[in-house]
Structure formats: structure tokens, C-alpha cells
Design a protein around this nucleic acid. Sequence first.
DNA 1: TCCAACTTAACGAACGTTCGTCAGTTAGCA
DNA 2: TGCTAACTGACGAACGTTCGTTAAGTTGGA
Lengths: 193, 193
Amino acid sequence: MKSNEIKEAALKYFTIHGYEGASLSQIAEEVGLKKQSIYAHFKGKDDLFLQVLRDAKEAELSSKLHYFSKVDSQNPEKDLYGFLQLVIDLFQKNELLRFWLRMTFFPPAHLRNEIGEEVADIEEKVQSVLEGKFQDWIDAKVIVHDIAKTPTLAFVGVVDSILIELVYVNDEKRLKDKLEACWSVFWRGISHS
Amino acid sequence: MKSNEIKEAALKYFTIHGYEGASLSQIAEEVGLKKQSIYAHFKGKDDLFLQVLRDAKEAELSSKLHYFSKVDSQNPEKDLYGFLQLVIDLFQKNELLRFWLRMTFFPPAHLRNEIGEEVADIEEKVQSVLEGKFQDWIDAKVIVHDIAKTPTLAFVGVVDSILIELVYVNDEKRLKDKLEACWSVFWRGISHS
DNA sequence: TCCAACTTAACGAACGTTCGTCAGTTAGCA
DNA sequence: TGCTAACTGACGAACGTTCGTTAAGTTGGA
């Protein structure tokens, strides 16, 4: 299917150059087409962009939810650390994730609200699943804290700091150091002394 | 000085629309000039951009170093939390910081290496100051850990997660919750039980 | 089976607009 | 008189988009 080839090329250029920096002629050339031919598959640049965006959202959401649905142990140390590695793996191998990250951080101005809603939606779903897990662990007295929201937000913070490291330089050594540092301090912060 | 007015307008548009999305005509109009007149002050778009970038780097570096030079107590709880609030304050009030963040995360492709060097430079300086502080606190036995690097990187991680929250939505309530959560878990993670 | 009607994908050409940049000129001030 | 900063005018290039036109493939009824 040619539409998918176009979306793949679009994904690549949007990720590298951003919305404004990516041109339809470059994208078309990548798949051996003239830019006009894109209009046989998409209404325009915005339409192409938003379809890629929805694919990215779907990829982000499903892979995260899939991890938590599969994992159901009573071992938060293993599950949470595994999630961090999942995020690293996703980001390094899946261009959709890099695209999603860039466009949610700095969306094209005229699509700001539209994208903001998608972000809020996904954010809320992931956080509620996570919070449920933490509540279970608190009830089972395997981690400390009275309310689940605190460790949930703190863990999301650890994920954030890893993402920043991935975006910033993607130096394998630095990433490993930061992951270990953030994780060990976080874990000490939520587990029984 | 008109050059500064131009740089201020450029800062604004680069921050909102990115390098490619910001146009010289918009910037010029903002200060009541024609776009061609910008060339009386700057060699071109890149020159203008790089001058703003260096201003931003200077602002980022000096404000952070200034904080740590001023603060010299034996109270890491106060000093570190104060630093987090400084970052929040800087980001919310100083557009240079938002510009710096956007451009270091997702630099224009043709200036990637140039910007990467500036980032590495500033990163190294801030981290070494921070690491020195943590070493002092470890020696004074006011926090745990054997090596200073671990709490340093973890603290940088907390800063990162706050920055992400600021970029993402900038909802005052959410920000406060996340700050408290990240901070309390971090602090429990590095202090004596 | 065959042909006409329709659909699809891609094209060249051109649209109007904006982009960044350069050259030459004018107004004001030291 | 120079110098500077602003102007006007124009440049080639690229942008996203629309148009009309092909060529190939699909469908449906006689």
C-alpha cells in the first residue's frame, strides 16, 4: 500500500525536521513520487500529519498498556524497572515514539489544541493504570506511602528523566548511569528501608 | 538599541514556532521594520538565531551557577528544593529558558553539531558544581550514598521531570503535585531513614 | 466474452504566496 | 562630509495546493 509508504517517509521527516521543516516534496521523493501525488492519498499536509500522529498515539498507548496487562506479579521492583527498559527500547527502536515525543512537546502552533487533547487522553489512561498498580502494592505493604498518587507521579518523573536523556544526546554510557542513579534513588525512596 | 529589540522578537517567534517556523518578516514586523532591515544588524537568519542562542546559554548557565555560589549552607534539603523552585521560576518568567529548552531538545538539523557542543559544555559545568555539593554533603554525613555521582544524576532527573511538566501542559496544580511527589520520594531516597 | 463506464494513482504545469537574501537609495545625525 | 540605519525593489527558490490529463485497473451489463 502506497499510503503507508508515504506515512513512513512523512514520519521520518517530521521526526527529524519538525512539522514546518518537513516538506511534501522531500517526503514524496523518498517514495519515488512527485509531491502532487500525495494529494491522491491525503487531503493535505495537515491530514497526512494527523494520520501519522494518530498512529503514533496508538503505538505509544498500546505498547504501554500491553506491558502492564501482561505483567501481574507482586514484585514492583522487577515490574517497574522492566517498564523503564521497555520505554528505552521503544524509543530507540520505534520512530513513532520519537515523533510522538517531539510533537507533543512542541506541537505546530495551529494544531496545538488538537494535539493537547490527544496528550491529555493518553496521559490519563496510562497514569490511572499505573496508579492502580501502586495502590495494590501499597495494600500488600510491599512499598511504603499512604496514597498511591505520590509514587505514581514520582515514577512518571523517572520515566521523564530517561526520556530527556534519550532525546538530549543518546550517549549509551550516560543513559545507563542516569538510569541506575534515578532508579536506585527512586527505589530507596518508595521501599521499606 | 534596535538589535536587542530584534533579538527579543526573534526569541519570541523562535520559541513559539521553532527555527523553520519563524520567519524574518514576522520578526521584523514585531519591531516595526521591514525584513530586509534586519540585515543591517545581522548577517542572516542563522546569525540572528545563534546570537539569541548564546544569550540563552549565558542566561541558563549564569542563573544556575549564581544560585549555587550564593547558597552555601549545610542544609541540602533547603538548597536542593530551592533550586527546583528556581528552575520553575526561571522557566515561567524567562523566555530565554523556554527557547533554550526547545532548541537543545530539537535543534534545527543544519546546526545540530554546533548546538550539541554548547549543550555539552553547559551540562558538564552545572553537573560538576552539583557533584561537588553532593560530595560535601556526603562527607558531612548529612545524606547517604558512597559516590556523589548517583544522587547528582538522580537530582538532575528530578529537574528534568519538572521541566517536562512545564513544557507539557503547564497546569499549576499538576505541576505542584508532581514537584511534591518527585521531591519527597527523591529526598527519602538520599536521606538517612 | 466484450465493451463501456467508472475508479484509482500518478503526472506536468501552474497557481499564488512566502521564504531568505542582495543591491541600490534615501533620511538623519555626528 | 561621512556613516549608519532604514527604506524600496527585486531576486531565485521553495512552499502547499489545485487543475486537467493521462494510463492502468476494475466493474457490470449486454
